Amino acid sequence: MSQPKIIAYLKPTCGWSQGVRAILRKYQLPYEDRDIVNVLEYREEMIQKSGQPFSPCVEVNGELLADVSGQELEQWLIAKALVQANDRPVETPTDQGCSGEHHGEIPVRINF
């Protein structure tokens, strides 16, 4: 199988973005990780290509998957015969958003 060209528009710490990265690592697929939080040009490019502001967005051989989870990306890659399904474990959930600990949020107690 030849390696697809992959550009991933991702946030540095988002759970959805980490799930996409986990799937790309699982299948050992090289990709360009475009940080849409710290590089405004990448965010604008993603919005222009996808027509919407939600991430992750993953472009594979010119085909864009908008607002996709790692789990959805894996299913798509298998359906397109770009990878063969395998049982390799992933180190992070592939279908989960961000929780407080992903952003370093600390619960605040308010006393009245």
Rank of each mutant, 00 (worst) to 15 (best):
L40N: 15
L40V: 14
E41W: 04
E41D: 13
Y42V: 02
Y42E: 09
R43Q: 11
R43I: 04
E44S: 11
E44A: 07
E44Q: 14
E45V: 02
E45M: 05
M46V: 05
M46W: 08
I47M: 12
I47H: 03
I47A: 07
Q48G: 12
K49V: 10
S50M: 08
S50C: 14
S50Y: 01
G51F: 03
G51V: 05
Q52R: 02
Q52E: 10
Q52S: 11
P53D: 08
P53Y: 06
P53T: 10
P53I: 08
F54V: 12
F54M: 14
S55R: 00
S55C: 10
S55T: 09
S55E: 06
P56D: 05
P56K: 06
C57D: 10
C57I: 06
V58R: 01
V58G: 03
E59H: 03
E59G: 03
E59S: 02
E59Y: 01
E59R: 02
V60F: 01
V60H: 01
N61W: 03
N61P: 07
N61G: 07
G62S: 09
E63D: 14
E63Y: 13
L64I: 09
L64F: 00
L64V: 09
L65G: 02
L65C: 04
L65E: 11
A66T: 13
D67V: 00
D67T: 00
V68G: 06
V68Y: 04
V68L: 06
V68N: 05
S69W: 01
S69V: 00
S69Q: 03
G70Q: 07
Q71I: 02
Q71L: 12
Q71E: 15
L73A: 07
L73P: 10
E74S: 09
E74F: 08
E74V: 04
E74W: 11
E74Q: 13
Q75I: 07
Q75N: 15
Q75C: 06
Q75T: 12
Q75R: 13
W76A: 00
W76Q: 01
L77Q: 11
L77D: 12
L77G: 13
I78D: 01
I78N: 00
I78G: 01
A79C: 11
A79F: 07
A79R: 14
K80E: 12
K80Y: 02
A81Q: 15
A81K: 15
A81S: 15
A81M: 10
L82E: 09
L82A: 11
V83K: 01
V83P: 05
V83W: 00
Q84P: 04
